[in-house]
Simulated scan of single mutants.
Amino acid sequence: MLTLIKNGTLVTEDKSQVGDLLIEDEKIIKIAEKINHGENMKVIDASGLFVLPGGVDVHVHLDLPMFGTVSSDDHYTGTKAAAFGGTTTVIDFISQDSDDLLKNVKELKEKAASKAAVDYSFHANITHLTETVEKDIPLLVKEGITSLKVFTAYNNRLRLQDGEIFKVMRIARDNGILTMLHAENGDVIEIMVKEAVEAQHLSPDWHAKTRPSWGAVESVMRASAISA
């Protein structure tokens, strides 16, 4: 199927110009000042409009169970909102609901497939490290998952210990996988939250006050040292 977008202001990485753009099977195959349209070609007149690449949101949480609640958007409402804002690809997170990482991937893919309004992919959270998980991490690549996320906060829930993060990073490195970090100091947060609650500091601003920015800096420095 050929689609011709005509007369739009085409925006690329280095310039903008009025012209035409030809798409075949979801791939741009030609950009020119004028492209003649033929039979069996869908034509869209973009006069007075900008034609630019869709945005990519690399961090979304859709239909995510978390600490007794669920994120407000599912894969339909969230991706529909993304499309209205010009975002045409989102990357969601796969929770480690079990030590069978491939099962977790399959379940979330099935959720998204019937609802998503834009293109999507996934990162995989690693929040509980076992020998089974270590063996499964390299298999994620064949499922299209090339990035992992580990946590230095949320003690006894999502956090991995430093040695476990080291193991994950090493496996990821050896298999061409990117490791991402939720960077906070979980031990400091636990202390500061306890003190705030005891002092009845319960207003929303204390969420930030119990999570000092220097804790994120320390966590990044620690993870950087581990990764070396």
Rank of each mutant, 00 (worst) to 15 (best):
S224K: 13
Y154A: 09
G68S: 13
D74K: 01
V168L: 05
D162A: 10
M221S: 15
Y154K: 11
W206R: 11
E190P: 01
E198S: 14
A208P: 00
S203A: 15
I5P: 02
E24P: 05
D97G: 15
T210I: 00
M1Y: 08
I137L: 11
S227Y: 07
H37K: 09
D74L: 03
E143C: 08
I191G: 07
S72G: 13
K27R: 13
N7A: 03
W214I: 15
G144N: 11
L108W: 11
G176F: 04
G186P: 08
F122Q: 03
K34I: 07
I171S: 02
H61M: 00
L160C: 03
T9A: 02
S203M: 15
G86V: 12
G144A: 08
N155M: 08
G163I: 14
D25R: 06
S219F: 05
P204M: 10
D63G: 04
A216G: 13
N155D: 13
L4G: 00
G215I: 00
I165Q: 05
L148H: 04
E190T: 12
I171V: 13
M169Q: 10
E134K: 09
S224V: 04
T152W: 00
G78F: 05
A82I: 06
V43G: 00
N155C: 09
E184G: 07
E218R: 14
E13W: 14
G78C: 08
A225M: 10
E26W: 13
A83L: 14
F122N: 03
P212H: 04
A113I: 04
A112V: 07
L21D: 03
V150C: 06
T179C: 09
L49G: 12
E218F: 12
E26G: 11
T146Q: 11
E107K: 10
G55E: 02
V141T: 10
D14N: 09
A216M: 08
E13F: 13
D119H: 00
I31K: 08
P138S: 12
K111M: 05
T77M: 08
M192D: 12
R157L: 15
L202K: 15
I5N: 01
G68A: 14
K194R: 15
M41C: 03
T79F: 11
Y120I: 02
E107V: 10
F84L: 15
V58D: 10
K209T: 06
K135C: 04
I145Y: 01
V90F: 02
T69H: 12
T127E: 01
H201G: 06
E184A: 07
V58G: 06
N175A: 01
L2K: 08
P65K: 06
D73S: 03
P212M: 10
A46W: 06
K6Y: 04
I5H: 00
S72F: 12
R173N: 13
D14T: 06
D73F: 03
L102Y: 03
L2A: 07
D99F: 14
M192C: 09
S147E: 01
A117G: 08
S98H: 07
I31R: 09
K111D: 08
I44R: 01
V60G: 02
L148G: 05
